[in-house]
Simulated scan of single mutants.
Amino acid sequence: MIKNIAIVSLSSGTIGEDFVKHEVDIGIKRLNDFGLNVRFMPHALKGIEYVKNHPEKRAADLLQALSDPEIDMILCAIGGDDTYRLLPFLFEHNELADAVSNKVFLGFSDTTINHFMLHKVGMKTFYGQSFLADVCELDKDMLPYTQKYFEELISTGMIKEVRPSEIWYEGRTDFGIDRVGTPLKYHPDYGFELLQGNSVFSGEILGGCIDSIYDFFNGERYVDMPLFCKKYKLFPEIADWVGKILLLESSEEKMSPEKYRKAVLALKETGIFDVISGILIGKPMDETYVQEYKQILVDVIDHPNLPIVCNINIGHAQPRCIIPFGVVATVDIDNQVIRFAN
């Protein structure tokens, strides 16, 4: 049972800005209503510029939250794009490895990089939701499907299974205070979709936002990011990928098909498609490029027997489930379920 929750800003410092105060207040109340004691780590509310300019403080917040025995769960405020800059402050002297403890860690988007950091030091984590994007939803409540998984995680410390959402929502474009209580437009959803390969497969899941993963190998966003990732060996060795399931979801930037192809090619060059047991693909936000992405996956991976399952309600499309990393998952598309061996 989760009681004490720490909120960290490991990428962007958005939650410290006045323009989101109404959202943050909603989120705090919801967490309190769930029976949680909420603590913002010392630098989480310092604002965008401060957080951007002080990666060492972001790293310190994470280390403090991991080391504090009273904290049960670490919830990431939001994503961003430069959490890789924490690497020297977490790995130069084994700081992260020394701080790791048995806690729940939840985040998505650029937090993908933090998940890989924690995987490197042997910590199991949870992918799929964040404080600002999910708990602070402007509707009268959290989105029901999203809330179901969040409540399961805080009440049990685990996720037993994931099933598809019956609906999906268009992304919110206006987060102003006048939008509080305004529902999102929604559409019927159609369940998990087997693109190719066997309908049942198993393995531990690892992955995240393909935009952030592509930045491991491509320096267009930050020229030094591939250098940092290589220096600290952030992308797992090929032996670590054997039998795993790769999770890929795409960001609100709605990566062009041309860039998506390059990102999948970069992953192919690592050799992981020859050793993993399957791939899970998150529903793209607003279903943008959904058909183009599917075709690219089939064409570029060029491995017809490798299972690929699309339309998982994870990542930037709403609503969002939560997927555990580091535990064996069994994907069963015939029965439209992903089960986890907790």
Rank of each mutant, 00 (worst) to 15 (best):
D240H: 09
N198Y: 00
K230I: 10
L265F: 09
I245M: 05
M225F: 13
L267V: 00
F217S: 10
Y214T: 03
K233S: 14
E237W: 01
L234I: 15
K268L: 10
E253V: 06
Y232P: 09
L265R: 12
A263N: 09
N218Y: 15
L246C: 04
F235G: 00
I205F: 01
L234Q: 11
I245C: 13
F216T: 04
S202F: 07
G243E: 03
S250Y: 08
P226N: 03
I238A: 11
M255F: 10
I238Y: 11
K233T: 09
K262T: 08
I210S: 04
S256Y: 11
D215H: 06
K262G: 03
V242K: 15
E269D: 14
Y214M: 10
N198V: 10
D215K: 14
K259D: 13
E220D: 12
F201M: 11
L265N: 14
W241C: 02
L267T: 07
C209Y: 08
G207Y: 10
K254P: 02
L265Y: 12
S250V: 12
G219H: 15
K230E: 15
A263Y: 06
S251Y: 01
L206H: 03
G203K: 13
P236Q: 02
Y232S: 08
E220H: 10
G203M: 03
E249C: 10
V200M: 02
Y232T: 07
S250R: 11
A266K: 08
C229W: 04
L234W: 02
N218R: 10
F201Q: 10
E249F: 15
D211R: 07
W241E: 01
R261V: 01
I210A: 01
F201L: 05
L206V: 11
G207T: 09
K231C: 06
K254I: 05
L234P: 09
A263R: 07
L265H: 10
E249W: 14
I213T: 08
